[in-house]
Design a protein around this nucleic acid. Structure first.
Length: 277
DNA sequence: AGTGCGGCCTGTCCGC
DNA sequence: TGCGGACAGGCCGCAC
């Protein structure tokens, strides 16, 4: 993984949300500048006409979606796999891949940079949770709706590998490749094991592991937030002691066996063949 | 319904 | 040194 690369999974999105909130909440939008409309889906044409004059009254998150509420309409932003949303001062000139600027009263700008353009921006009338892309999402992993029993119940009859199951946003949001890999390692579960052939007690371990690694990354990401304006907001996983992700060929921190990589569901999956069963 | 996979996109790295 | 190709990733949309 290239040094300094930002990969927005749930902790990174939550860190971004906390970072921009103080500068965005209660602010009126003065202008919208779209430099590159072609993201995963085009940035809505009407945004530059309809957003200015409105006030951001909510800065929320659902899964990996940022929800910027303005009364009865919401700006919904997904960072894809290379997107960064930051608050910059008005005099900071845009650079390559700065696709969208939202000028705020008082001088700051909310700036979206996304080299790979896998991100998306929606402009939605009504409750953002009813947006078609959000309506079918599974529970938040750090909420009380996400339980071992829930995971176990959802897995009944599923023959897909547990790693694909865990990364399915309809099952639970926020488990991207990094955190799914780490959680399965911590729980000692082989990523290829069919989801429906895992006992409730083992799902309890997976549930706890996923929550722990996400919480840890959010805490660590938060430590870089002291001055988010103009700052880099380093992703939480860069400060985590990753146990499996990115360690293929290196010794397992639990048993010493060499970690290996296999492709599971089109994704590179690192695991310990000895202690993950 | 569940599952698997191609496609989107660019920066980085590897081998020749 | 230059260049082609593989790879990384989330997630949609399609085919079976």
């Amino acid at each position: 993984m290239p040094a300094g690369f930002f990969m927005p999974e749930l902790p990174e999105v939550e860190t971004t949300r906390r970072g921009i909130e103080p500068a965005v909440a209660g602010r009126r939008v003065e202008k919208v500048i779209v430099r590159e409309q072609r993201l995963r889906w085009p940035i809505p044409r009407e945004l530059p006409h309809e957003l200015p004059g409105r006030v951001f009254d909510q800065v929320g998150r659902r899964g990996k979606y940022l929800l910027l509420g303005t009364g009865d309409r919401s700006l919904i932003i997904h960072l894809g796999m290379s997107g960064r949303l930051s608050v910059v001062t008005e005099d900071l000139a845009p650079t390559r891949h700065d696709h969208l600027d939202i000028l705020l009263a008082g001088g700051n700008r909310l700036r979206l940079n996304d080299p790979r353009r896998f991100g998306s921006v929606f402009w939605w009338a009504g409750d953002p949770l009813n947006h078609p892309r959000l309506a079918g999402l599974g529970p938040e992993p750090l909420s009380g709706h996400f339980t071992p029993q829930y995971l176990y119940t959802m897995a009944r009859g599923r023959r897909a590998p547990v790693k694909a199951f865990l990364m399915d946003a309809r099952v639970v949001v926020g488990a991207g490749n990094i955190y799914a890999t780490e959680a399965l390692f911590m729980a000692g579960i082989h990523p290829r094991r069919p989801a429906g052939r895992i006992a409730l007690t083992r799902y309890a371990e997976l549930h706890a592991a996923l929550r722990a690694v996400l919480k840890d990354a959010i805490t660590r990401g938060g430590t870089t937030l002291r001055d988010y304006v103009g700052a880099d907001g380093r992703p939480g996983f860069f400060q985590l002691d990753l146990r499996a992700y990115g360690r293929t060929g290196e010794p397992c921190k639990r048993c010493g066996h060499t970690l290996r990589t296999e492709r599971i569901g089109q994704r590179a999956s690192v695991f310990c063949p000895r202690c993950q069963r």
